[in-house]
């Protein structure tokens, strides 16, 4: 090949390189920009509703006026009870998988089950919630039944995040601890967990964000259209932000247009805030080395 030929080839290669870089860059932009435009539109259409009253008042006048207090409180309630069930279980599962599980068939099945738990459609989780918690355990349609359904559904989030942060603790620390005569559990409690607790917290925040947005799993298990009072016990039904957005958008006639936009914005804001906190947390962690 002549020296000139090589140069031509280089040139066309470089041109092609630039073309592909541009193409993929444009694809990335097309993925992200529309969503940002849409979010901008939500702000534009919904911002007029925001006031202190919006957050602190009950809905009024057939849900066409007033605020979202019971939905906010209900979501808080649902998330809290769901965390109460799923965090201990998820952390235990992650510790087992990271610290005990041998490389065998059972472990592979557990991993497959986690993937499936995350992949089963949310409406099937809802059917499970109805069959198991509402009917079989006879909790009725209640916060308890809805929260447990959410807990099962979001369990993989906790497990995966916790397992990752446990596995980020170097194996050499475990070996050093074992050789001192520490049991596996002593090693976990004194060495592994203290050094992964912030990673676990990051996962829990992510789980909260998932739980806040889920709608289908709570539709038939505990969420309700409207209640005049804030929930008093886990056996009450409750309003929830996600379900409230669905109902006032599709089920209630005569709602002024800005109201659902404001509810949607609130929901997005909560979720994005939680995710941002989790991401920021992770970045701070990455910068702060203990070894």
């Amino acid at each position: 090949m002549s020296a000139f030929g090589a140069t031509d080839l280089d040139l066309s290669n470089r041109r092609r390189e630039r073309a592909f870089r541009g193409l993929f860059g444009a694809m990335t932009a097309l993925l992200i920009l529309p969503v940002i435009l849409i979010l901008g539109m939500l702000v534009w259409k919904g911002h007029s509703v925001f006031s202190l009253e919006f957050f602190l008042a009950h809905p009024r006048n057939g849900m066409t006026e007033g605020g979202i207090l019971p939905a906010l409180v209900g979501t808080l309630y649902l998330v809290a009870v769901a965390l109460f069930a799923s965090v201990p279980l998820g952390v235990a599962a992650a510790i087992y998988l990271s610290e005990y599980a041998p490389d065998n068939l059972l472990t592979r099945l557990i991993n497959l089950a986690i993937i499936n738990l995350a992949g089963v459609p949310s409406i099937v989780h809802a059917l499970f919630g109805v069959g198991a918690f509402v009917l079989f355990f006879d909790f009725g349609t209640s916060i308890l039944a809805a929260s447990l359904t959410l807990a099962v559904m979001t369990l993989p989030v906790v497990i995966v995040a916790t397992r990752e942060s446990l596995q980020a603790v170097p194996q050499a620390f475990r070996e050093a601890s074992w050789s001192l005569g520490a049991t596996r559990w002593q090693t976990i409690r004194r060495i592994v967990l203290p050094n992964s607790v912030s990673g676990i917290l990051t996962g829990v925040i992510l789980e909260v964000s998932r739980t806040v947005g889920e709608t289908a799993p709570i539709m038939f298990t505990g969420a309700t259209f409207y209640v005049a009072f804030l929930p008093m016990s886990v056996f009450d039904q409750t309003m929830a932000m996600s379900y409230h957005l669905y109902t006032i958008t599709t089920q209630v006639p005569g709602v002024p247009e800005a109201l659902p936009f404001a509810v949607a914005l609130t929901l997005i804001a909560i979720v994005l805030l939680l995710n941002s906190v989790s991401i920021a947390f992770r970045m701070v962690l990455r910068g702060k080395k203990k070894w």
């Binding site: 235990a92 599962a93 087992y96 099945l109 089950a113 497990i159 596996r184």
Partner: peptide
């Protein structure tokens, strides 16, 4: 400490297989 380790292992194993239990439970109840 030996007994605590055994207890912890049993409890954590329970957590570990919970994922399998739930997948089966979902299928069974549906």
């Amino acid at each position: 400490e030996w007994w605590w380790d055994k207890i912890a292992q049993a409890v954590l194993f329970g957590g570990g297989i919970s994922a399998i239990v739930f997948v089966i439970a979902i299928f069974v109840f549906v």
